[in-house]
Every structure is written in C-alpha cells, then in structure tokens.
Amino acid sequence: MPQPNPTSNRSFIIALALAVVGLIGAQIGMYLAYRYAPTQISTGSLFVVAPDPGVSSFNLYESYRIFFTHLPSAYTTAVCCGLMLLGGVMWLLMRKPFWDHLTVAAAEVGLVAGALTLLTGAIWAKYSWGTYWNWEPRLTTMLVLWLAFAALIALRAALPPGQKRGILTAVYGILASPLYPLVHWAVEIGSGSHPKSFSYLLTAPEITVTKNVATWGIIPLFVAIVFVRLMWRNVNHALEVERAA
C-alpha cells in the first residue's frame, strides 16, 4: 500500500481544521447574535425623551440580528474578489493550474456568499423598508458582482479544459474583481436607503462584540470552503494528469 503524498495529506488536515474552527466560530457568533445581543431600541422614539443627537432614532428591535449573517457574508464576497484577482494575476504570470483553481474556487464561494448577502438583505429590507428589493446603488452593485461571479462560472463551464479556458478565467477574474470597491463605494453615491455602516446604526458594546465574533467566525468558514474547493480541483487535476500518464 503506497503512502499518499504528504503535502496533500497536510492540506487535508488543514481543510478539516479550518472547517472545525470556522464551524465553532460561526456557531459562537450565532449564539451571541441570538442570545447575547440586546434588543435594539433607541431612547425616546415613543414619547418621553428626545432622541440623542447623532444616534439614529430608527428602531430595529430584533430585526438587526440578521446583520450578523449579512455582514460576514458581504465581507466574504470582498475576500473572494481579492482571491479572484490574486488567482487571475498569478495565473497570467506563472501559468500554474493552482492559480486557475483558486480563481474558480473564489468565484464559487463568492457566488454562495453573495447569494446569502442578497437574501438576508432582502429579508431585512422587507421588514425595514417594506419591500424586498429596490434599485438602490449598494443593492444594484452587489447584484452585479453576484452576476459576475455567476458569469465567470458559466463561462468556464462552457469551455473545454485547456490554455484558452485558463486565459479567459484569469482575465475575467481580474475584470470582475474591481466590482467590489464599487460595491463598497456605492453607499456614498446618491440618496440610498442602505445603512452607511454598521456602527452608524448600532452603538451598543454587546453588538460590537457580537459583530466582531460573527465576522471572524464566519469568514474562516468561507475561506475553508475556498480552500477545500481549491484542494479538490487540484486533486482532480492531478488525477487527470495521472490517468493520462
């Protein structure tokens, strides 16, 4: 019985470790989000005390708990854009399949995280704005980014394996990744209803703690998925090479 490649075995352990860390982090984040974070209600929105200046008098009650899923997912799309850019640039420089696989894995996870962002956002918008969707700049740019992730995957799926597919994947990854700065910047354009930032709405210390834990718990989970998809593609590629040999 031959021993498997030690490098691959190590990456298997890393994948499992990342999954466990991510899962624990995400579950702690969720516990804090649903059990520890207080009901958000700003003072004086009913009748007695005037709202403090500078604090939003907009009441979120329990609805803001969905932000602890929404925000890390949105950050993950940013991470995926960065990885896509890295994968594309490195592939064009080095032409190693590894970088091609990284670009696709980032796009796949970006698609999932983007879908979660859009869905949770839509659910909250229904509560807060009374509608699931409006063509507000932040929402529109996020949808565009999501479509770009989908387009990269569709584009790649339509091509036979080879150099041309690698070029298109890398070029498209590089072209699509600057869409994230656009998403980031979109809240500044025009009069949007999307909250400008998290701390603009929520100032309680418990909420800040929960936000940080949820962010640093959920992002590793998604990074673990990028990693495992990357590993899976690498292994598949190696298998094909081995079969051809």
Binding site: T140, V144, L155
Partner: peptide, 29 residues
C-alpha cells in the same frame, strides 16, 4: 478584451454576451 478571448474558442459568440453584460451594468447605470 473578452471578444478576442472568446473568439478563439468554439461557441465563443454566445459567451461574450454572458461575460460582458454583467460587467457593464455599472456603466449602463
């Protein structure tokens, strides 16, 4: 850029629309 890349693969004409349109929605907007 994308037209040159897609023209070199079979069925690339159909892919150009898929690839280009999402990228250009911000321009359109």
């Amino acid at each position: 850029l994308l037209a040159t890349a897609t023209s070199e693969v079979r069925g690339g004409e159909a892919l150009l629309a898929v690839a280009l349109i999402p990228l250009t929605i911000p321009v359109l907007a």
